[in-house]
Design a protein around this nucleic acid. Sequence first.
DNA 1: CTGTTAGCGCGTTCAA
DNA 2: TTGAACGCGCTAACAG
Lengths: 336, 336
Amino acid sequence: MNGQDLGLAAVARLAGVSTATVSNVLNRPHLVAPATQERVLAAIDELDFVPNRAAAALRKGTNRMLGLVIPDIVNPFYAAIVDAVVEAADRERYAVALCVSHEDPAREQRHFDMLAEQRAAGALVVPITADWSRLSQLRMVGAHLIAVDRRVDEAEACSVAIDDVHGGDIAVTHLLAIAGEGVVIVNGSRTIVQCEDRRAGARLALSRAGIEPDSLVELEVAEMTVEAGIAAGRRIAETGAPRRIFCTNDQLAIGVMRGLADSGLIVPDDAAVVGYGDLAFGNDEARRLTTVGQPKHEMGEVAVAKLLAELREGAAHQHSATTFQPHLVIRESTSR
Amino acid sequence: MNGQDLGLAAVARLAGVSTATVSNVLNRPHLVAPATQERVLAAIDELDFVPNRAAAALRKGTNRMLGLVIPDIVNPFYAAIVDAVVEAADRERYAVALCVSHEDPAREQRHFDMLAEQRAAGALVVPITADWSRLSQLRMVGAHLIAVDRRVDEAEACSVAIDDVHGGDIAVTHLLAIAGEGVVIVNGSRTIVQCEDRRAGARLALSRAGIEPDSLVELEVAEMTVEAGIAAGRRIAETGAPRRIFCTNDQLAIGVMRGLADSGLIVPDDAAVVGYGDLAFGNDEARRLTTVGQPKHEMGEVAVAKLLAELREGAAHQHSATTFQPHLVIRESTSR
DNA sequence: CTGTTAGCGCGTTCAA
DNA sequence: TTGAACGCGCTAACAG
């Protein structure tokens, strides 16, 4: 056990072969005679040889590493994506450089620069703005990019995203099957794409059911938090708004149920509530909430798969955009 | 804007200087005359030159990258640590290679191998076993290791950890100041170090108050979940156990409050409950829960600081173990 | 202050 | 099937 690091050469010397042969047993074992292989492996073991990826990266111009750029790691939605990506990458022996942009474009830019300098083979990115051109520097050095949780023109790049319109659709379609009149949506700002899409889906569901979409009662909240949900729930109870309620995330839904309870309205008896996200919070209210589940893990896995495919295919590669369909997770909050 | 990558040499040629000078303006600008610097920077800009870290890493034998090995990323406790680490590393222009061991030693080993091959400058690791010797391979290639959330002998390595004994102590000391008789602890398996430590702290608090530690009523649960907490809460209500309750994590505490409520016992009027962790769940029950807060962010930051210090100091470095003191976050669940 | 030079460890020709 | 030799892009001496 020595701490020195003489590289292939030392191994080659000990095994009585050339460095090329050592390199071959490591990377293209089929080209080396079994006997030689064994000798080399023994030498590697003997010397505790650890291949130097930096040298390989320099030589090959690309590194067995990929970047993952997300806006926030504490958010369980992104955490789930990170989990999936890291696992898929690990399976293929890729390192994952995690970058958290915190919604700061300058920081995001620095991350791209860094990944470019590392000669990362590619990057999975949840961009904080729609300005895809900022990603050009990564492109330049041959890195490949996949947009995650964002749909991007197939001329630009591969992307994976979740169909939020469909999510809103199935949520409200489900509500419409429950006895009652009218539907209310508790939504965040419509400037957020996801919020707008979920709303569009809700209206679509109404239309399909032969109901005027404008009859949808809309409650917009500034922050999509439990607190805002509570306030919304109270307002719904007080104003006699519809008792079939679609909340565009789970926190809002949990809050709404509380707000309703404050006014003596019990879910699901007096009202039906659907949330969105199906995030694993530590409480069991979430376990009672009917919600729209997103295939986060699958999205992460496919993102990695797309990236690796793009690397493999080279110039022949055709970008593709995959959209995942969310699914309804039916639980107590709508069981009447 | 070309996609080619001719390196320092191209920049040097365009700026009419040598490669060494270009390298200097990048890494030691103070050694270069301002005028020259400007010319070089202009050339860099002109060619969209992106330095190649792999080459630098090869040359220097170490990479501006550090590994972060954790058991689980979906767990908000680790997510918070990742957040802190990534931010601190980013500030120093270090890339962070995230590895998730999923409690699998073989996988953890692969991660270490990979980090060694990448010639990561160091790694922060939450080891899944106490077998510190397995980390020797990383050591060998000059990587430096910091143990996170684990206390390690200072002869071995630097470490950062949280004093769970103290956490149990302050939790129960707080409970003892509330009117009532006896204390019950709802705890996970004592084979888990954290659980055992929190219990020890609880007993310590009793002793200090002149109470026989064995009077502590102990409820052990198999899984530290909300469900288990509910069951425990019911049991407490039924058996007339003490109404001053210390739960060794927040999920248990939330469950206990529910279980008590099922039997008509209202917190804080009929019982006082303290949790542990102060994790940001999406519900506001957590916002009402008195709990033991852990300085997760600080721990992550200090871990990075220790690593960078170790890198800077070289052979002169003395390992150190820092223990963070948790603090009580007093909220409604104990306000009587 | 700047240029010259010599590798860092590896992968990949091309010959043998 | 194996070996010799070159160079990937950069940094660190050292010289000027």
